[in-house]
Design a protein around this nucleic acid. Structure first.
Lengths: 215, 215
DNA sequence: CCGTGACCCAGGGTTTTCCCCAGGACCCTA
DNA sequence: TAGGGTCCTGGGGAAAACCCTGGGTCACGG
């Protein structure tokens, strides 16, 4: 898993901001022993680039125009385990991290990172080091939500009432109350507003449900 | 107000992402007739840079570590009206635009913009053109919230109950109900959950209150 | 076969929110 | 001095949310 010293670290950069891509590219290419072999802002193209170049490190933004960076990480992790993944996190992405932990990400990097920090993170990732903050950003959700609960939580966050949710799902309002109550228990919330806040903080709604947002 | 043709366009770049700053800088310096005279990621330093260099164009990010980009824009607009301001907007910044319109911003630019778009935007801004999308990003909030209402909305979004808000602000619960009701009317919401959603969408809570987040 | 978990429904209770109504104090500007 | 805006306070009532209890079906695996 660890790379021999002296070999050039090959990096693929994935971010949907051209300017940030460019800045990161010149920054990394100025560093000795690091070469940027691919750059893109599109998720599917990122997977192709990894398949083609088999880079040592994948610098990956989570917000991409086509598919989620989480999805890219999952596929790369499954098919090309030799590539170390370093996630570039923006402002509101703290919730994503929870979902990424089981995927074996090699490091997290804030987008506000400086030249030195990025070069350092890339070098460490290539060397096999795992930089996980893990203990930060609050506690982990003990009990996971069921699909039905996520469905209802999503509508709750959207501002729907119990009665509206019941009508949309063709179930009774009492059943909605039941699920909402369970959601509160699992999230540790005491009101809808609190549940909404926690859902945002933990990023519960941002995950794998991207494919069925069609109403 | 318009600049004579042939003169070099002098630009100051303000963004808290070093990589994006660097990318934008090299991009602009590659373009003929454009020179970057200052670069920073800090709001107060941005104002100093403008005062010192009197640039033709200020490329301004809205999220800065110290003071809001909105505040920077306001001060620059007031003291150095010759400097055209082009705002760099990220993902969730749609709400900011509402607050910026009365300030006479010369242009809005998505952070996902390409080299050509940025160079073009800078040239147009320096030439006196105003590029306002204005009609996009949904409806504009007709009535702005009062400071008291924003304060209460912030707590509402944080998940506090009316009684808790009342206790925190040392006012009666009935008064909180009154403000909450007014907030609903102004936002077009029918419940707290809806108000929270709208507040997030419009970015109402992200504005100038950065300086008093201390509880 | 029986336990477990997810899902569904219901009654009955308290609490909170929501939506009208009303009035008074303060500051700023015209 | 008179208005207008903001902030504060209050009552009463309907609606929604919240919290507990109790049922039931279905699919899964020991």
């Amino acid at each position: 898993m660890t790379r021999p010293i002296g070999k050039t670290i090959r990096v693929v950069i994935v971010d949907d901001h051209p300017m940030l891509r460019e800045g990161t590219r010149v920054c990394l290419e100025r560093a000795p022993g690091i070469a940027v072999v691919g750059v893109t802002g599109i998720g599917r193209e990122a997977i192709h680039l990894v398949a083609e170049h088999r880079p040592d490190v994948l610098l990956l933004d989570l917000r991409l125009p086509d598919i989620s960076g989480v999805e890219v990480a999952r596929q790369v992790r499954a098919a090309y385990a030799d590539t170390a993944i370093v996630v570039l996190t923006g402002y509101g992405d703290a919730g994503y991290l929870r979902a990424l932990r089981p995927l074996g990400i090699r490091g997290y990097l804030a987008k506000t990172a400086t030249d030195a920090e990025i070069v350092d993170a890339v070098r460490r990732a290539a060397a096999g080091c795992t930089m996980v903050t893990s203990q930060s950003e609050g506690e982990i959700l003990t009990e996971p939500l069921t699909p039905r609960e996520r469905e209802i939580l999503r509508r709750l966050v959207a501002g729907q009432r119990n009665a509206e949710i019941a009508a949309a799902l063709l179930i009774s309002a009492k059943t909605v109350e039941y699920h909402v109550s369970n959601i509160f228990t699992k999230l540790g919330a005491r009101s809808r507003a609190e549940a909404i806040r926690i859902a945002h903080e933990q990023g519960i709604l941002l995950l794998e449900d991207a494919g069925r947002n069609q109403e």
